[in-house]
Amino acid sequence: MDADAFSVEAAGVRQHESAWRRLRRNWSVRIGGSVLVLLVAIALAAPLLGTVDPTLFDAGSRDLRPGMTGQITTLDGDTIPHRFLMGSDSFGRDIYSRVIYGARVSLSVGLLVALLALAFGISAGLGAGYLRWLDGVLMRFMDGLMAIPGILVAIALVALWRGSLTTVVIAIAIPEIPRVTRLVRSLVLSIREEPYVEAAVSLGTPTWKIMFGHILPNTIAPLIVQGTYICASAILLESILSFLGVGLPPDIPTWGNIMAEGRVQFNEYPHNVFFPGLFLAVTVLAVNILGDGLRDTLDPKMARRV
């Protein structure tokens, strides 16, 4: 070691900042993350935010403009006064309550789709990338999956199983899986050539340990970033499906449902479409900004790859 003191190199050792610290300093992560945390908090605390049951309606409170006070009938048949912050729809339901509860659906769909697509995509991508005999078969299957339009898959599944959260999540996740698989496969193909993987082979490390212990951890950063993009597009797609009437059933409030129902009266009562649309846009924007921030801090090379 003493001789190393002479070397220029010894002086050149740098302390790297931890990824976590870099993340906290990034403005995109801060802004996107804060907005998202706020939205999650709103979704969780929905019953405490002056909302009523989003399925309640009152014939006397139809088509109220935002801020007007009217009444609403509870399930027990009592009629209580209620202030409609975002107005009411043509059934006399409270748009505010529906939008706030709708956040639960949108955020769950985003998160679940991302997790599902990543879980399947990682397994398939690791297999295809590291086990060469699996590659041809698996990737041709994925190519086939990619050739089917996503909306068509969704419509088919909903027709088959009728609309529910599970159906919608699966329907949206399926077209994402081949994309994740391709990304993971390309990452694995480059990482498997790294000398540290070859060193592990020569150390007699079993194949499964190399795949999960050496290769998988080094794909995580780009996958987290990809996950946020999937999440954002899933939220958007769920709204589109619900808007088209092939998503969740109309009795569950989602941003897409609310907009679909408000569409007819858009000229007279634009608030029916405006408020859910605003929430949708802000949510997707926040997730995408967060994703960009994560990409810049965790994986600078990713910008060129995706």
């Binding site: 000398p195 540290y196 020569s202 007699g204």
Partner: peptide, 19 residues
């Protein structure tokens, strides 16, 4: 028999798993 032969590679920056 793997243990009998070991190898040291060229690039010290890529020979160790960064994680």
């Amino acid at each position: 028999l793997r243990r009998k032969v070991q190898i040291v590679f060229q690039d010290p920056y890529r020979s160790l798993n960064p994680r």
